[in-house]
């Protein structure tokens, strides 16, 4: 077995985590869900194997005390920040029904061109003629004018809204993790100097 220093172990852990994260990201984008099932346990095995070969003392009672205190303070801070952030973000969900509903339909004309009808309905209403605010018909979707293109892009954006929401959730989780690490790091440095 090859023994390694603690710093080498940290580099190995970081590189493995980056590799696993990249593999998961790529496989999700490609629609291959088998890779994460293999990559995550494999990454954990690599990290644990590296940890067992560290010749230095990784953690002792002082380190444990610093970590536990930092974790507790981080939890206290994040609970407060998380409560505020969740209320602010949830208010957007409440206001979401205020946005108008946009629906579109593509149909083929007799001359072979494709037309598109875009309808905008009242917020929170059913798809019916009495709730219709505005309607636009693009005669030929391959030859749009400026106004038609704007309507079309708005419609397209509406279609990708679900993907955007997932992306925002992902970014929120990622941001929360970064915030957690930063706050923990700050408290760790503080208690490391104290003890």
């Amino acid at each position: 077995m090859i023994s390694m220093k603690y710093f080498t172990y940290l580099i190995c852990t970081f590189m493995t985590a980056c590799l696993v994260a990249a593999l998961i990201g790529w496989s999700m984008a490609a629609g291959n869900f088998l890779i994460p099932i293999i990559a995550i346990p494999l990454g954990l095995i690599v990290i644990l194997a590296c940890r067992q070969n560290v010749k230095e003392v990784i953690g002792d009672e002082r380190v444990n005390k610093i970590r536990s205190r930092s974790a507790l303070r981080t939890l206290e801070v994040l609970v407060i920040l998380g409560a505020i952030a969740s209320v602010i973000l949830y208010s957007y969900v409440v206001s979401d029904p205020l946005a108008p509903m946009i629906k579109g339909r593509v149909f083929t004309n007799d001359d072979g061109t494709s037309s598109m009808m875009i309808n905008m309905y009242r917020p929170g209403s059913m798809e019916s003629p009495e709730n219709l605010i505005r309607s636009t018909t693009i005669k030929n979707i391959n030859a749009m004018n400026e106004s038609e293109a704007m309507d079309y892009s708005q419609f397209r954006r509406e279609g990708f809204l679900e993907n955007e929401r997932k992306g925002i959730v992902g970014m929120t989780i990622g941001g929360s993790l970064v915030a957690l690490l930063v706050i923990f790091g700050v408290f760790y440095l503080y208690y490391d100097r104290k003890y």
């Binding site: 003392v57 002792d60 009672e61 002082r62 380190v63 005390k65 490391d192 104290k194 003890y195």
Partner: peptide, 15 residues
Amino acid sequence: GVTRNTIISIEKDKY
């Protein structure tokens, strides 16, 4: 079986 930092902290009466 501890880290060097722990010994330093104990000697300085910090820990």
